[in-house]
Design a protein around this nucleic acid. Structure first.
Lengths: 187, 187
DNA sequence: GAACCATACTCAATGATATGACTATCCCTG
DNA sequence: CAGGGATAGTCATATCATTGAGTATGGTTC
């Protein structure tokens, strides 16, 4: 019962098709909610049946038709009810950390390689978030934007994503360097 | 196929019963892998049937008997194989972030309350990690421990958990303060 | 002595997630 | 004109995770 709310929150910014939502969930929303397209299409169907969103068909000639969805007043109420009940901290699940936990009893080389690769990915995500943040705030400084814009939610979640990836990168770099120093390996 | 490896990694530190593992997964391992006791018992059964761990019964007189599990060579090989294949970044899922994403269209009061509560929880976790880190390294400095100990995996994952919670706390505090400043509310 | 907590675990039902395969159209490139 | 990529979805299934209830024993507390 939770992807539901993530989809409703994403649809607050405007009308989107399942396909567009899938892209949004692949970049910005993936900070706080991961979902593959199949899940989104299924959830959109359920949400529409529940009356929390409405879809309208858009005929296109240069590409397949699509359905655009909007949040209904009932959907907004559902989101409000969701925000009112205390939430539990997220359940983390990270394979790379499992490997590091076990690294003393394994060959460290592949773990080091993965840490270094992950550091690069995290650095790329930091830059992606920076671009998104700049785009969201336009000409305004962050200070001004945060105090005066009427749509700060996406900016704040991006800030969180940026912080997380920055932290992640630093940790990966440090751990990779340490493991290299402890057990020098050729590659 | 992933709780499997988290359990194997946790069992590298010694013999544990399902009940003990449940406690470990409730505190230290919950950094990187969350699981409720029922999942652990089920997974232990599967792991034993697959020959990746072995259990031995321990008769107790002051409390119910228990079964202690150890990783077999096959289990270690399974872990090594797991560490060798590149892993995908984790799939984050955080209700609180969904609420912040939508906060512009909702009553901010309950969201602010949850952010402030979460900041307190995160601060407590930082302290818990600090205690765990001190306990793991004993008298040694972190520097010395990291370079000379033969069991740094759990320490490194704890460091990551500490970083994450610290970052989380700061973000929660800042966002709560900002939302309060934007829309002054009585409570 | 009743209530409650800690240890130690099991079962069942539902709900969520992950994975892979599939359809269909249009555009662009070589 | 063949192939690949982008758009826009659908279907099926198997595994995973979550929730709630239940069993049993012993120790501690009020």
């Amino acid at each position: 019962m939770a992807l539901r709310h993530a989809v409703l929150a994403a649809l607050l910014d405007g009308e989107y098709s399942g396909y567009q939502l899938a892209k949004i969930f692949d970049v910005s929303c993936s900070n706080f909610w991961y979902a593959v397209p199949q899940q989104l299409y299924a959830e959109l169907t359920k949400l529409e049946r529940a009356g929390l969103i409405t879809g309208r068909q858009v005929i296109q000639h240069d590409r397949p038709n699509k359905r655009l969805f909007t949040v209904t007043p009932a959907g907004l109420a559902e989101l409000a009810a969701f925000a009112a009940v205390p939430s539990k901290p997220s359940s983390t699940r990270e394979d790379l950390l499992v490997m590091v936990q076990a690294v003393d009893r394994l060959d460290p080389a592949p773990v080091i390689a993965q840490l270094e690769e992950r550091a690069v990915i995290a650095a790329a995500k930091v830059e992606l978030f920076d671009r998104m943040l700049r785009q969201l705030r336009g000409d305004l400084t962050e200070e001004t934007f945060l105090h005066e814009s009427n749509r700060v939610g996406p900016y704040l979640t991006c800030l969180r994503g940026r912080r997380f990836e920055q932290e992640n990168r630093e940790w990966c770099v440090q751990v990779a360097a340490l493991l290299r120093a402890r057990a020098p390996v050729s590659r």
